[in-house]
Amino acid sequence: MLKHLFLSVALVTSAPVIVPAIALACGNAMFVDGDDAVKQIMQAEKLLARGQNKRALKLVSYEYRFESNQQEKVQLIRATAAFRFLKVSNYLVSNGTDDLKSNLKTNQDNPLLLARLAEGYALSKKDSAKAKTILEDLATRDLMPDGFAFATLAKLRSQSGETESAKAAIQSCKSMLKKKSLCTRTQKKGNSAPMPRNRSKGRKFGANAS
């Protein structure tokens, strides 16, 4: 009896050890080409760059499709798409700014997070001053992440009556983006936002991933 008990314990405790290891080494040099989640993230980023925000938003609508270490990136894409596609009053926009603020706590001074947060702030009158402060600082430090950040800055400068510097920002945007029209396009207003989904956990869309 005791012998059997020992054998059982030995088998149970050794089970994790004898499971063949996945020969997974670093792989820093490779995109995980075959991984669906990575493909979707990369595709969503491309769509954002082309101004296809609704499609980008749809691609990252299901949180459970992504690994925990990808959630921050997914939240960034979702927030950015929401800012560019939706009305300011939409809860996705406020969730987006909340997500970005939360991620900035552990990644302070991250220019991309800051620039996207500024895009979110720029949608509301009460926060537009904050948005301008952020973007002016990034521009001074040559840390504007892309043309969209310059487009937002141009809009904010224009609202402040800084016509010449607004033109300069538009110019910077145009030198970066292939599709120049995105530099002057106003925020598209719409109310047909794709509904957020988190089927597996039933969590509210945009809530921070654990």
Binding site: L24, A25, C26, G27, N28, A29, M30, F31, V32, V38, I41, M42, N69, Q70, E72, K73
Partner: peptide, 12 residues
């Protein structure tokens, strides 16, 4: 990118 990669898009 070998040493300056992204943990979201690559292994490692």
């Amino acid at each position: 990118w070998h040493c300056h990669s992204s943990k979201e898009l690559a292994l490692g």
